[in-house]
Amino acid sequence: MFLLGKTGKAALSCLAGTLALAGAATTQAQEISRGEVIATTCYTCHGTYGVSPGAIPSINEISADRMAAILQAYRSGQRVATVMGRHASGYTDEEIREVAQYFGKLQKRGK
């Protein structure tokens, strides 16, 4: 299925061989989730980890279920907003669930 040229194969095998080295320097070889990536875009206005320093509400202490419900209500227009409706409309159900779950985990970790 993978149409890798010779160089590509060599590169991948090289990559696999050196993963242990990279792993020594990094905590764990793991993919960064889409939920986390989307969450970091929330941080720009709401503060890092959703802890707001100012007039925009903090979003770090909302359960995953409640956050998903709120985002869906913003998206449908059921919940009135200045800007959040315009943002929430950009995400699928799945993306909303993933970002809400990420915030839910953060809450448990006490960030």
Binding site: A22, C45, G90
Partner: peptide
């Protein structure tokens, strides 16, 4: 940052999702 960390780890960088306000 997420891409660079992923590349060092030898895993796939996450799908991009950006916002501008």
């Amino acid at each position: 940052a997420a891409s660079i960390v992923s590349l060092f780890r030898g895993v796939r960088p996450p799908s991009p999702s950006h916002v501008n306000t």
